[in-house]
């Protein structure tokens, strides 16, 4: 389980329409760029966010996204939480399988997003809803590390 984020620094965005998805992507990109993520990592995080936000909208019936910048010593990261109170996921392992879909998609949203970030955790209860938490850290390769080598 990821440590609870500080609500004071979290930004909450509603997810209720296609236009909201565009706004979530826009905001995530903004945060990622400010935290120093490189272009490739930014693209990965935004794409993962797009997948999960769409799942929140399509499968969860809408909800919200929470964006929180993270700090751990010299490392910067970004935590994204997607929350809905929809039907939940009965079999998480199955849902995480490449190609598994109940909605005629490619079935790559969850499993693909997992490969695009450092951590992905799902908390869900049938009939109660779903909370998906993503964490990505600015990669060492693109960060400036003085005195290393």
């Amino acid at each position: 389980m990821t440590p609870a984020s500080d609500p004071a620094t979290a930004t909450s965005l509603p997810i209720g329409s296609d236009a909201d998805l565009a706004w979530v992507r826009h905001q995530v990109r903004q945060f990622a760029a400010e935290l120093g993520f490189g272009l490739v990592q930014q693209t990965k995080i935004v794409t993962a966010a797009s997948e999960l936000a769409r799942n929140t909208l399509v499968h969860g019936g809408g909800g919200q996204a929470r964006i929180t910048p993270l700090r751990n010593g010299p490392a910067s990261g970004l935590q994204l939480v997607f929350i809905d109170t929809g039907p939940g996921i009965r079999d998480v392992e199955l849902a995480m399988t490449d190609g598994y879909t109940t909605g005629g998609g490619l079935g790559l949203g969850l499993s693909g997003a997992r490969r695009l970030v450092d951590e992905l955790a799902i908390e869900t209860e049938p009939g109660q809803g779903t909370v998906v938490t993503l964490v990505a850290w600015v990669s060492r390769a693109s960060a400036v590390r003085p005195g290393s080598g």
């Binding site: 490619l106 790559l108 693909g112 695009l116």
Partner: peptide, 13 residues
Amino acid sequence: RPAIAQTIVHLGI
């Protein structure tokens, strides 16, 4: 673009 190509590959598309 290169960043998108890498992302597509990781997504598994």
